[in-house]
Design a binder for these strands. Structure first.
Lengths: 344, 344
DNA sequence: TGGCGGCGTGTAATCGATTACATAAATCTT
DNA sequence: AAGATTTATGTAATCGATTACACGCCGCCA
């Protein structure tokens, strides 16, 4: 393969094979419409020249970019990056590139829309409460319906394709598990509840507490933002209380880790003095000390499914009349951070 | 902004403003070459139609995609995802999109090259030992020199633009720090040393040990792959030894975490029984227990600098005669996982 | 007043790939 | 063997934006 100054075009290949550009194109896309001998000659020429299709030209002609746009709130967050990894793998396997953005602020509807009007991406993957429903609609709009799949978080709008996990029920199962261990005094650290849609995990927690007729003390439910820092902050709060819960269900692993570390600074050990359950099962969970009991989210699966669903939509492989709606189940992974209550 | 079936083209805008497409294009790129009144009329028309430039067409014409390709070994890895986050932020701020790939296997030179020949990306960011030098050259080749910046790992080839950290010296500083604490029996867990270029951290470790005239016992230097699992595996190894080091310098935080968790399973507590130093300072490091003494890598800075350097190269803002070569310094963050040796 | 320079705008070529249509050649029919 | 059909390939238009070149107009100077 000789590298010339300029990358070879389909014309160069045509010249080499002594055929027209049209024929080269046909060999590449619909080989059966070309005679055996010509096909071989063209393939040979392609190899000789090291030709690769110019995607810009192809996109312009076909109005498709073979590219997806993934929008996530924080790529740095291991939770999302695992999903992204799966997205990229799946997309690449199906011949698509992945553009990534994490830009917040501004009005996302504007610049996200640009990606499509501007023909850079054929579909959009939205993760988490990055955009609220109205904005999604503004982008995916009835008129110029844009292939869009929302992943992971419960969206109230059933019109939007989505791949979700059973956050609400999973949260309930966490509480039930703690209950079965003997805990009756259970606290919670939530995520951002200001988001347009209610925080499913918080709702599930509340529901289970209610169903089990456990007291839901306001000072045992502390607001957080799913960072380790907010877990530590919650630890300060709990440490100062006269009466403490015997178990805390933390909305995600990050805050659980911050919580455990923070409590330890006050001499409160997990699980001897207090049990902690996380949510997500990020990589460190099993190597933290104590290793974390947590509700595992099938993140890799979320990414894969969301991606393949989106590509199916783009390529028209699926009946678009009914919005896609996939619900995945979380799995409770029991480790060292939970134990029966000591003074029960 | 009315959403028509098809996104508006520059022709539509031209019709609205009663000018030619050329004039619209000029208003958008070189406003000074257009009269005040026309400019206003065109801008108005742009707003009315909701026009956005079609990037496919623009790329085709200009032979530039305003897009970068970031190639990393594992996006799921928090270390890289933090860098990626910075890359995306910086690139977006400068008007570039970011394509991500983590595909391994195959011959990367082939498909990476495709991205460029195919006009999908204008430049490449390579992280870590993803590709060896020969392959990088095959892509960036003398002839069709492709804008490329390698980030983070030491590359032997000074011809390749790179943003690095002082891995070797930083590793030396780790050993020296342990030495100053009183440690004389020091072990190491390395990363993949099969890579073409030597593992800088391992080399730094060896060099410091030599300089300090400390014994370098082969069974205290265990090979790993920078995963938590390999840290745990190393723990098994160390636990079985009759004579153990009093401190272990782990090649990265992940393996340090696995190591500490693994040792604890054998009743060996950190830092009471053994000191552990990590490398990178990933998010959990400060919330692990014990919190991790580690060599912080300026990851966010790596991502930002690599990106802006690459864009500068693409846009011809920098003299390309001399390859870019930025060296960033790591910072030792002392936390709980290290202490003076107990039996010293 | 004729000529020159500059400004603002339009015309048309261009980037590379795809594909409807046309044409030529080969094969089949009766 | 003449016409009908199929098969293989080429021609040329197209996607949307950019830009070299050309044209017309205004003002200025001699």
């Amino acid at each position: 393969m000789v590298l010339t100054r300029k990358p070879p075009t389909i014309q160069d290949v045509a010249r080499h094979a002594k055929v027209s550009a049209a024929t080269v194109s046909r060999v590449l896309s619909t080989p059966d419409r070309v005679s055996e001998s010509t096909r071989q000659r063209v393939n040979e020429a392609v190899r000789e020249t090291g030709y690769t299709v110019n995607q810009a030209a192809r996109s312009l002609r076909l109005q498709r970019a073979k590219t997806l746009l993934a929008a996530m709130p924080g790529i740095g967050n291991p939770f999302y990056s695992t999903i992204l990894d799966a997205v990229v793998t799946e997309a690449n396997a199906r011949g698509y590139g992945v553009l990534v953005t994490s830009r917040l602020g501004d009005d996302p509807a504007t610049w996200l829309g640009d990606y499509f009007h501007s023909n850079r991406a054929d579909g959009l993957l939205v993760f988490d409460g990055f955009l609220d429903t109205r904005r999604l609609h503004a982008i995916a709009g009835e008129g110029a319906s844009l292939p869009l799949v929302a992943a992971y978080d419960e969206l109230p709008d059933p019109q939007i394709n989505s791949v979700l996990t059973d956050n609400l029920q999973a949260a309930e199962r966490v509480v039930r598990y703690l209950y079965d261990l003997g805990h009756r005094r259970i606290g919670h650290i939530s995520g951002r509840t200001k988001n347009t849609f209610p925080n499913e995990r918080l709702v599930g927690f509340r529901k289970a507490m209610f169903d089990l007729r456990l007291e839901l003390r306001p000072d045992w439910v502390v607001p957080g933002d799913y960072t380790m820092g907010s877990g530590s902050a919650a630890a300060e709060h709990f440490a100062r209380l006269d009466e403490r819960p015997t178990a805390i269900f933390s909305g995600n692993d990050d805050s659980a880790i911050g919580l455990i570390a923070g409590l330890r600074r006050h001499g409160i050990e997990c699980p001897q003095d207090i049990s902690v359950v996380g949510f997500d099962d990020i990589a460190v969970a099993q190597n933290y000390s104590p290793s974390l009991t947590t509700m595992r989210q099938p993140r890799e699966q979320i990414g894969r499914l969301a991606t393949s669903t989106l590509i199916d939509i783009i390529e028209g492989n699926r009946a678009s009349s009914v919005p896609a709606r996939v619900m995945l189940t979380s799995e409770l992974v029991i480790r060292e951070s939970t134990a029966p209550p000591s003074k029960a």
